[in-house]
């Protein structure tokens, strides 16, 4: 049955049936990567480069207190001004980027890695394994993420590694669910059944036959999670629960400036803007890549 139903509410487009050139052209246009991709990518490149080469940029030391120049707005010596202790804002933001970016990349990878293992186990072995992992995930979900982080940060302290790890734990449930669904879906396909019939070990089947098929949705998932991780780290350091004090982090800098919003708003607003642009860029670039991946996959099949 090929019943036509309007796929959106719009007056019928009148006009003679002509060639389909414009339909195809608009299809292509949608798939090209435009400024909405390249500008954010350029910004991210700048941020990453600055964070990596921070030590060679001739910046003021990020924790150098200068009582003679506190709460200064942007000027010649301090391009982005100074904070309430006279520390150079540019330097604090660039060194803060290190924390944000490290957590942003590491946490999703950790979470997806662990979620992948759990999800595959649940989806492949089913039965009680599935049940136990399911309960564990439900438990994890019933505690607000920030509460978990709050407790973890107090228990395990605020080293960068610990922040990455505990934040990564938050990404496990969704990653595990995606993997479980995909594994369930694939472990009954012919090629897996065939492999099993030929006596392949579970490990071999999982890594060779199942894994390649579920890797795409997970990559897409990592892309979504990078900006989320940066945001959560920002929230944590805003509460003072991320990396320890003299190490600058974006959330921390924003929080410090809160007291001086009235007289020196730049202390909070500049890192806010930087963080906003970075998170937005990750969202835009990630979205464009995900669309691309989906197109490539659809085209390939």
């Amino acid at each position: 049955m090929a019943d036509i139903t309007p796929d959106r509410l719009e007056g019928s487009s009148a006009g003679a049936p002509d060639d389909n050139a414009d339909a195809i052209a608009s299809h292509n246009r949608k798939n090209r990567l435009g400024l909405g991709f390249w500008i954010p990518l350029a910004w991210l490149a700048v941020v990453v480069a600055a964070a990596v080469f921070a030590d060679f940029l001739g910046l003021f030391p990020a924790d150098e207190i200068d009582w003679m120049h506190i709460n200064e707005g942007p000027n010649d010596a301090h391009i982005l001004g100074t904070d309430h202790l006279g520390r150079d804002m540019l330097s604090r933001i660039i060194y803060g980027a290190r924390v944000s970016l490290t957590v942003g990349f590491a946490a999703p990878l950790i979470g997806v890695g662990l979620g992948l293992v759990l999800g595959i186990l649940a989806g492949y072995y089913k039965g009680w394994v599935d049940e136990v992992i399911g309960i564990a995930i439900d438990t994890w979900l019933a505690i607000p993420g920030l509460v978990i982080l709050l407790l973890f940060s107090v228990v395990f302290g605020g080293s960068l590694g610990m922040v990455c790890l505990s934040l990564g734990l938050l990404f496990i449930p969704t990653a595990a669910r995606i993997t479980r669904a995909a594994t369930l879906n694939h472990s009954n396909r012919e090629f897996v059944l065939a492999a099993r019939a030929m006596g392949a070990s579970d490990f071999r089947i999982l890594t060779v036959e199942v894994l390649p098929n579920i890797i795409w949705p997970l990559i897409a998932f990592v892309l979504i999670d990078i900006p989320i991780a940066i945001v959560i780290e920002g929230a944590l350091s805003f509460l003072g629960l991320s990396v320890k004090a003299p190490t600058p982090s974006w959330g921390g800098v924003i929080a410090e400036g809160r007291e001086h919003l009235e007289g020196s708003p730049h202390i909070s607003l500049i890192p806010t803007a930087v963080m906003f642009m970075t998170v937005l860029s990750f969202n835009l670039v990630g979205d464009a890549i995900r669309k691309r991946l989906a197109d490539v996959r659809d085209g390939a099949i």
């Binding site: 036509i4 139903t5 309007p6 796929d7 959106r8 719009e10 019928s12 487009s13 009148a14 006009g15 003679a16 049936p17 002509d18 339909a23």
Partner: peptide, 15 residues
């Protein structure tokens, strides 16, 4: 029948 009712989807060209 949809053409008579003028209830066509947006990708339709009608004359």
């Amino acid at each position: 029948s949809r053409s008579i009712m003028r209830l066509l989807p947006p990708n339709a060209r009608s004359s």
